[in-house]
């Protein structure tokens, strides 16, 4: 089994969200970068679990980013994975990024491509589906569980108000979320090993960007909280009924 895991760097979940350059760029000053949690906790750890069951499994990581993405990809290698590929390009457009990943996947002839269900910065949930279409492969999004069964995979996925279990032909692309695996912390042995694992840098292939970000904005500040005394919850119910008109 040969697995390609897509890794994106994203700002730490507690990072202050602010913008510069007339609200056209994310303010990166002082921001800690982490592996996008869905890529790390679910996509990568699931691939590691598969390798633990079948040691012949090969795990490659891919990221599309400039040299500043390397600490994050080294951290991913410390968790597991045999080697990493960095496509030396930066883009905010999902189709451009998916085109780069699809090219890596095509060359490496992978059985599985795993992504997180979305990144926590752009929340587009698009890369997996786009890669699958570019490769002509089935795609299961929002996967909650995953087991290999011969030449097929048994995958649980989220649907509105429940869960569906699918049997899918491999090769396939899967986007992973909570339930797939339990988060892990890299150990010292993994951190040491990651230093010498291959990290290949490749130049991007020609691809179009279909979208561009014109500007960012922050949500309007809340008017402030109206406190209601604990001994008068009837007032809360009255407000929600008469003023907010929601109950």
């Amino acid at each position: 089994m040969k697995i390609l895991v897509c890794i994106s760097k994203s700002p730490d979940t507690t990072a202050k969200i602010a913008f510069t350059d007339n609200n056209t760029k994310f303010a990166t000053d002082g921001v800690q970068w982490i592996i996008n949690p869905y890529d790390e906790w679910y996509a990568l750890v699931k691939a590691i679990e598969i390798k633990e069951k079948d040691p012949a499994t090969v795990i490659h990581l891919v990221t599309v980013g400039l040299a500043d993405a390397e600490p994050v990809i080294r951290k991913a290698l410390a968790l597991g994975g045999d080697e990493a590929i960095r496509i030396n390009a930066e883009s905010q457009d999902s189709f451009y990024i998916a085109s780069q990943i699809a090219e890596v996947a095509r060359q490496g002839n992978y059985d599985l491509v795993f992504t997180g269900k979305e990144t926590i910065d752009y929340n587009s949930a698009s890369i997996g589906g786009m890669v699958a279409e570019l490769l002509g492969l089935p795609y299961v999004s929002l996967a909650l569980s995953f087991e290999i069964n011969g030449t097929k995979a048994i995958i649980g996925r989220e649907i509105e108000g429940g869960e569906e279990t699918d049997e899918v032909e491999i090769p396939a692309v899967v986007s992973c979320q909570k339930g797939m695996a339990e988060a892990r912390i890299p150990n010292m042995r993994g951190i040491m090993a990651a230093r010498t694992k291959p990290l290949k840098v490749q130049e991007p292939v020609a691809a179009d960007s279909l979208t561009s970000i014109v500007s960012f904005e922050l949500p309007p500040a809340k008017a402030g909280v109206k406190m209601i005394p604990a001994d008068n919850p009837g007032e809360l119910v009255r407000i929600l009924h008469e003023e907010v008109k929601i109950i």
Binding site: S94, A125, S126, M130, Y139, L142, S175
Partner: peptide
Amino acid sequence: SDGKAIAPRLSARLKAAFVSG
């Protein structure tokens, strides 16, 4: 959940710009 399974694929197939969310 269904939209997330289809719309990005359609974007790649048609090379049509896609905004999700």
